[in-house]
Computed example of a mutant assay.
Amino acid sequence: MASSSHSTLFGAPHPASSSLDPYRDQAGFLPLVPCHKCGTVFIGRVSQKPGSKGKRFYKCPLLEHTDFACGVYYFEEQYINYLVAKGVLPSRL
Rank of each mutant, 00 (worst) to 15 (best):
H36W: 05
H36A: 07
G71E: 03
K53W: 07
R56W: 08
H65A: 13
C38P: 04
K53G: 03
H36C: 09
Y58V: 14
P50L: 12
V88N: 09
Y74H: 13
C70M: 10
G51Y: 02
R45E: 07
P61H: 05
V46W: 01
F75P: 05
Y82K: 02
Q48Y: 01
G51M: 05
G87H: 12
Y73A: 02
G51C: 04
R45S: 07
P61W: 08
L63R: 11
K86G: 07
Y82H: 12
V41L: 02
V41F: 03
N81D: 14
P90A: 12
N81E: 11
E76C: 11
K86I: 05
Y82S: 06
N81H: 10
P90C: 15
F57H: 15
D67A: 13
T66W: 06
I43F: 07
Y82N: 06
K55N: 13
H36V: 09
Y74I: 04
K37R: 12
Y79A: 04
A69I: 04
C60H: 05
G39L: 07
A69D: 04
K53L: 11
L89R: 02
L89T: 07
A85I: 09
P50R: 04
S47W: 01
G39D: 02
I80H: 00
E76D: 10
K55T: 11
C35M: 09
T40P: 01
Q48T: 08
V84I: 14
E77D: 13
G87K: 08
V84F: 05
S52Q: 08
D67I: 13
E77T: 12
E76I: 13
F42I: 02
K86M: 08
V46D: 00
Y73P: 00
P61S: 13
N81V: 10
E64C: 10
Q48F: 00
G71A: 07
Y74C: 13
G71P: 06
S52K: 06
K37E: 06
C60Y: 10
F42H: 01
Y73V: 04
F75K: 00
K53Q: 08
P90G: 11
I80W: 03
H36G: 14
G71V: 12
F57L: 14
L83V: 07
F42M: 03
P50C: 01
L89Y: 04
I80V: 15
F68N: 15
Y58K: 12
K49N: 10
K55Q: 14
A69H: 11
S47E: 09
G51E: 07
Y58A: 08
P50E: 13
C38T: 05
V41S: 04
